[in-house]
Amino acid sequence: MNQDTRLSLTVNGEEREIEIDPRATLVDALRDRVGLTGTKKGCDRGECGACTVLVDGRRVLSCLTLAVTVGGAEITTIEGLAGEDGEPHPVQRAFLESDAFQCGFCTPGQVLSAVGCIAEGHAGSPDEIREWMSGNLCRCAAYPQIVAAVSKAAVR
């Protein structure tokens, strides 16, 4: 039950070897073992979307993913989204310009979900964006601005 296990992960392009409790979820592994606290835990039950990260390019809820199940996978967190020169990702830029965040706690999940939403081809219209971004709750309710930001980034 408590035997730590060794796990190899590729996080933001960097290979990591960590010792991990098999009960640990990906969000806790990223935060507590890898030291990347940009990924947020809002509900720990897959209800709010704050912990969204990309696993092999697909958006997943890292609180519903056991870390040991993503060994060898490519994981992208909010810390790894900017270009190598530090240039913000088009989605990050659009969120800033559109005021698409307030307290910022759901924001890493929103941004990664938006990257996924655009990659999936689900950003064709405001209504489509609203639907496909509804897995990410924002209690500040920056929703209209998030729709505007995703529309803007999708065009870029």
Partner: peptide, 22 residues
């Protein structure tokens, strides 16, 4: 004005209470 706290929040650099290392 766009929010000066935006870059930190949009890159994961903003530290909330549970994020502080100890």
């Amino acid at each position: 004005l766009v929010r000066p706290d935006g870059p930190a929040k949009l890159t994961g650099a903003a530290r909330y209470a549970a994020d502080v290392p100890a």
